[in-house]
Design a protein around this nucleic acid. Structure first.
Lengths: 126, 126
DNA sequence: CAGGATCCCATATGATACTG
DNA sequence: CAGTATCATATGGGATCCTG
C-alpha cells in the first residue's frame, strides 16, 4: 500500500494516478476559496484576501498561497515600497482552474436544497 | 469569527455561504474517488469499492459512504442474504455531481504537465 | 503590512480486533 | 462480508509573538 513510512498516513498527493495529486491540492480547505476570490475580484493584496475570506488565518492564507504559487496557479508580485506591497494574481493556468472550480460552485448552489432535504430525511430515520 | 467553540477549529462545513458546505464535503480525501469509481463502474459492493480504491481503509470507506448516503448522493441497498450483501449506487443527484467531479479530473489531466513544470521551477529557485 | 516561528490541541485517519 | 469499537499518532489549523 502507498502509505507514508513515518506517519503511516496515506498521502493524497502521492500515488500513481496523477489526478490525485491535483485533486488532493484542490481538496484543501482553503484552496478553492482563495482561487474563487481571486477569480471574482482580480489581483489582491494579502490583507485584502484575508478580509475577503471569512475565517481564514494568516497562517493558512500564507500556506495556501505558497502552495498555489508553487503549482503555478497564482503569481506573487512584490513591489518594493515601504512597507513592502505584495499582490497575488491568478496565472492563465489559475484562470483555467477557476473555471473548473466555478463548475463545482454552480453545482453546489443548484443542488443545495436537495442535499439539505436528503440530510433531514436521513437524520430522521436514523 | 465562525469557529467551533470547543476545538477552536474552523469548520468548513458550516458558515453562511452554503457553497462551502458542499465544497467541504467534496474536499474530503476520498469523496471524489468514491464518486468517480461508482460513476465509471456502476453499482458496487462494499468490498469491490475497497479493492478499487487503492489505499482506502475499511473505516474511511464506510465513513465516506455514510456521508454520501446522508447527502443523497449515494443509495445503499441491503440484500438479506447470508452473509448480507450491501451495494452502493449513485443517485441521480450523485450522477450530476459526478459530472462536475469529472470536470475537475479532466482539468487535472490536461494540466498536470504545467503543474509539474511549475513545481520544478519553483523548487529550484527556492 | 507581509509573513515567519512557536506552542498546542482536536481531529483525521491508520491499524487491529471483534460482532452478526 | 459489512460494519463497529478502540488505541495511537501525525497533521491541520488556531492563537500569538516577532521581524524587516
Amino acid at each position: 500500500m502507498d502509505t507514508d513510512q513515518v506517519s503511516g498516513r496515506w498521502d493524497a498527493t502521492k500515488g500513481a494516478c496523477p489526478t490525485r495529486q491535483v485533486l488532493g491540492r484542490i481538496g484543501d480547505t482553503w484552496t478553492m476559496l482563495v482561487i474563487s476570490t481571486l477569480e471574482s475580484r482580480g489581483t489582491l493584496r494579502s490583507g485584502e484576501l484575508k478580509a475577503a475570506i471569512e475565517g481564514i488565518t494568516q497562517k493558512m492564507l500564507t500556506q495556501t498561497l505558497r502552495h498555489l504559487e508553487r503549482d503555478g496557479v497564482v503569481r506573487r508580485d512584490v513591489v518594493p515600497t515601504v512597507p513592502v506591497t505584495v499582490t497575488y494574481t491568478l496565472t492563465p493556468l489559475g484562470v483555467s482552474l477557476s473555471a473548473a472550480v466555478a463548475t463545482m460552485r454552480t453545482w453546489a448552489y443548484t443542488h443545495m436544497d436537495e442535499i439539505v432535504a436528503a440530510r433531514n430525511e436521513f437524520d430522521e430515520g436514523h
